[in-house]
Simulated assay, not measured.
Amino acid sequence: MRKTLAITAVAALLTSTAANAAETTLTISSYGGGYQEAQSKSYFQPFMAQNPGIKIVEDSSSSNAKLKAMVETGNVTLDLMLTDDSFGLDADAQWLEPIDYSIVDKSKFIEGAAGTYRVASDIEATVLAYNANEYGGEAPNGFADFFDTEKFPGLRAVWKYSASGIFEAALIADGVKPEDLYPIDVERALKKLDRIKDDLVWWESGSQSEQLLASGEASMALVWVSRALSVGEKGVKIDWTNWTSQTGYWVVPKGTKNKEAAMKAISFFTEPAQQIEFTKYMPYGPSNKHAVDSVDAKFKGNLPTDHLDTRILMDAEWWAENGAKVDLRFQEWLLQ
């Protein structure tokens, strides 16, 4: 009888242990839409297939403010979140778990892709796109030509956001070297922008930027690479002479109950096979340096990581410290 009870107890313990293992749930928040669908196909589903004890629940309400509120109230329901350049910096340490580089191989990332509290999911870009039909086969060559309305007439579409890269573009066009961009000389940049202010049309959403190019209203634009490629059949091409880098980053909220599983997920998501698979669906480059030259997809040649030598790497730390002040000056300039 005792032997039977002991066997029953052991069986119950094993069943309970297995059940607990199967109950590990990672809640991951990203941007939704086609972007998150691509992540699901490339990252989430393969990860669950290789880790049957972990279930991923997807959320598409990625919000820095929401994450902060969760941590501050002690009600952390997210385990992993996709964010942009403005978050995950050292200044955000109170809300985030440090990346565990005993689980995630820090050496596999390209420059700037692995920080103390964040790891790049992919490398994105704001590029100079132009309507080739308007220029008789002559192509612009960098930000200097974006500001040359005599050689390349027509309206220019620009993101109505001070940290969009427009200040960097203006200074590069005015002769500043990339390594000398920071601290941003705001007044010099605005003086350069004054020269084409009457030729600027501002966009505030990706779809709006796409429409401005597709309709021909704008002859040139500084737009997200995915939007430029979406209207390629309309004669829109990309000049990669200069481009500003944006990045999607994984961060782990402080206080998550599944920290180790979240780190394992980051490690898996940033392996070459997964990153290469992602580029089949989205025109964003791998953050893993070992995947950069192995990509062979429809976007090859128009991935940001195909042009790292011409990348203008924006200083997120500088923008975090100075962005509010610069934006106030930018808004004043818009009204002048």
Results as ranks from 00 to 15, higher is better:
Tyr31Ile: 07
Thr25Gly: 01
Asn141Met: 04
Phe278Lys: 03
Ile123Asn: 11
Pro283Thr: 00
Leu190Glu: 08
Val251Lys: 11
Glu37Met: 10
Ala65Phe: 09
Val252Met: 04
Ala69Pro: 04
Ala139Gly: 00
Ile276Ser: 02
Phe143Gln: 05
Asp293Leu: 07
Glu111Gly: 10
Ser245Lys: 10
Tyr281Asn: 14
Thr24Ser: 11
Gly165Gln: 06
Ala120Arg: 04
Leu334Pro: 03
Lys108Asn: 09
Val223Ser: 08
Ala157Asn: 08
Phe109Cys: 05
Asp92Gln: 13
Gly216Thr: 01
Asp239Ala: 14
Trp202Pro: 05
Thr25Pro: 03
Ala22Gln: 14
Gly32Tyr: 02
Lys259Val: 14
Met70Gln: 15
Asn131Ala: 02
Tyr284Phe: 15
Arg156Met: 07
Leu313Tyr: 11
Lys41Trp: 03
Ala11Ile: 09
Gly53Val: 02
Ala125Glu: 02
Ala316Gly: 02
Val225Ser: 14
Val104Ala: 06
Asp79His: 04
Leu213Cys: 14
Glu168Ala: 11
Asn133Met: 13
Asp79Thr: 01
Ala22Met: 10
Lys300Ile: 07
Asp92Met: 02
Gln36Pro: 13
Glu204Phe: 06
Ile166Gln: 09
Ile172Leu: 15
Ser86His: 15
Asn20Cys: 13
Asp309Tyr: 00
Tyr284Asp: 08
Ala163Phe: 05
Thr83Trp: 00
Phe152Trp: 06
Ser42Cys: 01
Gly74His: 02
Leu5Tyr: 13
Ile312Leu: 13
Ala125Tyr: 01
Tyr135Lys: 04
Thr149Gly: 05
Ser226Asp: 10
Val292Ser: 04
Lys237Ile: 05
Gly285Val: 04
Asp180Cys: 01
Ala139Thr: 14
